[in-house]
């Protein structure tokens, strides 16, 4: 069974970025995530909490989709439902045509958490190799993939360092390398740069964009920063709290090789404005 799962989820190391993008364009129409009428209600001692309500969402292959909203709007919950870390209480969700449990068992996505979550007793390299060890890849293959992905996040030369010897931004990059190490087509990121300062965040946003362009992954990215969402995304999903629901979906078709400079353009500001309007509307609804 492990063999079968590995064959499906850990394809031979992909070629360069160009072929990745070409392959991605070929299947551009294929939905990676489809949600219909998705609801999730937590039963607590203070009564039910409606974390998600009637969420409809389509994410196509190769897209970079940001989920944005204030704290408690269910954007992280939605990501966790996609990852099968939470289970919806109503509605349907498919991940690569499978239900989330099956997709998780086939290791179809890489998940980057708010905190780097690196194991302090492992070196950076060994942290990146953790999923590969669990999947049972041979040692030489593990080392090759760790080297490749650490280079991809600009951490070459830090293989033998321990996490506490790295800055917060470097730790989060190592955690991204770990999520990429088994080459999943889908990358789920839960406010990965939320704990970092603005300057580091800008830099990492640029690097993430380059990474996305090079690998052709589908990315679902949770954030509560408007500039971050507009800068990174091809599609912005605006959410509002209690109950968590989608109030606007904004297409955001800046060129793939965008730079931080576009944040000064009128187009960028127009999209940012629309996101802000959406967030405000969500709040007034709540009052």
């Amino acid at each position: 069974m492990v063999e079968a799962a590995r064959a499906k989820t850990v394809p031979a190391p992909a070629g360069d970025g160009a072929t990745g993008i070409a392959a991605d364009r070929a299947k551009a129409a294929a939905p990676v995530v489809t949600a219909r009428g998705l609801s999730l209600t937590f039963q607590t001692n203070d009564g039910p909490v409606y974390a998600l309500k009637d969420v409809d969402l389509d994410i196509a292959a190769g897209e970079f989709v940001s989920l944005i909203g204030p704290s408690g709007c269910g954007k992280t919950t939605l990501l966790r439902v996609i990852a099968d870390l939470e289970q919806a209480t109503a509605g349907t969700i498919r991940v690569n045509g499978l239900d989330p449990d099956a997709a998780r068992r086939q290791r179809q996505y890489g998940y980057v958490f708010q905190a780097p979550g690196l194991f302090p007793w492992r070196t950076v390299e060994k942290n990146v190799m953790l999923p590969l060890e669990i999947f049972g890849l041979p040692a030489a293959e593990r080392r090759a993939r760790a080297a490749k992905n650490l280079e991809l996040v600009n951490l070459k030369g830090f293989e033998k360092k321990y996490p506490w010897q790295l800055s917060g931004g470097m730790q989060q990059r190592a955690s991204i390398a770990r999520a990429l190490s088994f080459d999943p087509a889908l990358l789920l990121m839960d406010e990965p740069f939320g704990a970092l300062d603005e300057i580091v965040r800008d830099k990492l946003n640029g690097q993430l964009l380059a990474l996305w362009a090079a690998t052709g992954k589908t990315v679902v990215f949770v954030t509560h920063s408007i500039p971050e969402a507009v800068f990174l995304s091809t599609k912005i999903v605006v959410m509002s709290p209690r109950p968590g629901r989608i109030i606007d979906v904004i297409d955001c078709d800046f060129p793939r090789d965008r730079t931080l400079d576009i944040r000064e353009t009128p187009e960028f500001l127009a999209v940012a404005h629309r996101v802000r309007e959406g967030l405000r509307a969500g709040h007034s609804y709540d009052d």
Partner: peptide, 14 residues
């Protein structure tokens, strides 16, 4: 272990 670490292992279907 932090809940994040356990979630991480779950995403690997460990």
């Amino acid at each position: 272990p932090h809940p994040i670490d356990l979630d991480l292992m779950r995403t690997y279907d460990a």
